[in-house]
Write a protein that binds this DNA or RNA. Sequence first.
DNA 1: TTACGCTCGATTATCGAGAAACCATCGTAG
DNA 2: CTACGATGGTTTCTCGATAATCGAGCGTAA
Lengths: 240, 240
Amino acid sequence: MATGMSQIGSSSDFGGELLSATVRRLVLDRIVQGHYRPGERIVEFKLAKELGLSQSPVREGLRELAAVGIITIHPRRGARVRLPSAKELADVSVVRAEIDALAARLAAPRIPDAALDDLDGLIGEMLTQLDAGDFSRVTAADVRFHHLIAEASENHALERAFDQLAPFARTFITLTLPDVDVRGIVLEHRPILAALRARDADAAAEAARAHQLSVSELLQTHFPATLGDPFQAQEEEAGT
Amino acid sequence: MATGMSQIGSSSDFGGELLSATVRRLVLDRIVQGHYRPGERIVEFKLAKELGLSQSPVREGLRELAAVGIITIHPRRGARVRLPSAKELADVSVVRAEIDALAARLAAPRIPDAALDDLDGLIGEMLTQLDAGDFSRVTAADVRFHHLIAEASENHALERAFDQLAPFARTFITLTLPDVDVRGIVLEHRPILAALRARDADAAAEAARAHQLSVSELLQTHFPATLGDPFQAQEEEAGT
DNA sequence: TTACGCTCGATTATCGAGAAACCATCGTAG
DNA sequence: CTACGATGGTTTCTCGATAATCGAGCGTAA
């Protein structure tokens, strides 16, 4: 492939950050941007050589991604990008319906006004980026929106649970964006915000739950019985 | 090649298991059994020497534990056992109330009869081990009980979320077991099982939620004021 | 032709050592 | 006496290399 450039040392070197963290972010970006395709194998040895560093940090970074469920690692068989099946995405939505509902309920009485304004801004950001066609930023804003609520719940376990599930949202959008009414989904954030502003815990919880459940429904509408599409071993390397 | 010839190689060597996995289990056991105290530092170098292997597997095992939240790792500052504060345990219970309720609801219509019998057996196991005074096995059976339900939900995301929270149950018992009516808590499993047997999703969900909430209450009763949380969990995870 | 066993290339898992970073202690200046 | 800077020991983080393991392809036998 490319001549052995060490992207790490020059381009994306963060402050005192660990190399494993850098690798983690880099691989995650590549997955999100589609450079690494679902099911594609990631060879730590090759990646290490490409980035100009040894296996250890690469290995660690991949493990961390595996811990969050972005990729799968089988002992002595290496790592593969894991594209969740439609069923799995629907599963995530169902769980998030409960998680997000709880988060909204807990956040309602205690979320600061400043955060509420931030939420407002994030909805605007989603709409703007939606018009601009930058779906990657749409999901980014979406994740930040919901994360902010989870954070405001002041329940650390809840926040962690959320963080574990959030990355799947990206996959969801990437999968469905072509023909789906994303705008409708985005607009569903407004009732959540409104309920939070009103400090109405029950209403906020319900709005949040409804939001996730509609995502879940959308998935089932879009992939009626296409559940047999899990992971295919793709050795093709002709990256776009 | 240490003279002591390594506990790993002889005592607890599993089939084709990775050394990192062995380390993970060993450290987890030590934490549960109180050998490693909360807040205590775990030096990977020393641990590696003690076990007669190199740092790499130890390091990986510790990272995996950190990913689940059992210990905390700060870059270049090492790993510390993290005993969750009472508040945090209560937080976990609140989240598990929702998770377990959802699991029970989904499991009710589809859990196999054989699994129901297993659940029955596990309740018996808990009571037996409780009388025997082996609290470690009590928690083990408890975790298996709830995990079985999560598994029966056939929702993989749910199962993962559960697995992330489950380890805290051990801490809970270890913390509270001296003076608390553990038997009462254990007996609360029966209504859950009964509802599942009756295939009553709503009842099962409610029983499961009630069970976790009573755990949560117990914690707040036992640690009225926010128990000293010497070390606050700090996430260095940047989602975006 | 099909199935089995074997060898070979490729990749992971582990090792041991070196360099960088952190924490604590001590010494000195104000 | 207090505050600041240098110094040393300890531990992490990274590296390069070795050993173990997996999957595929080839050849041979029934």
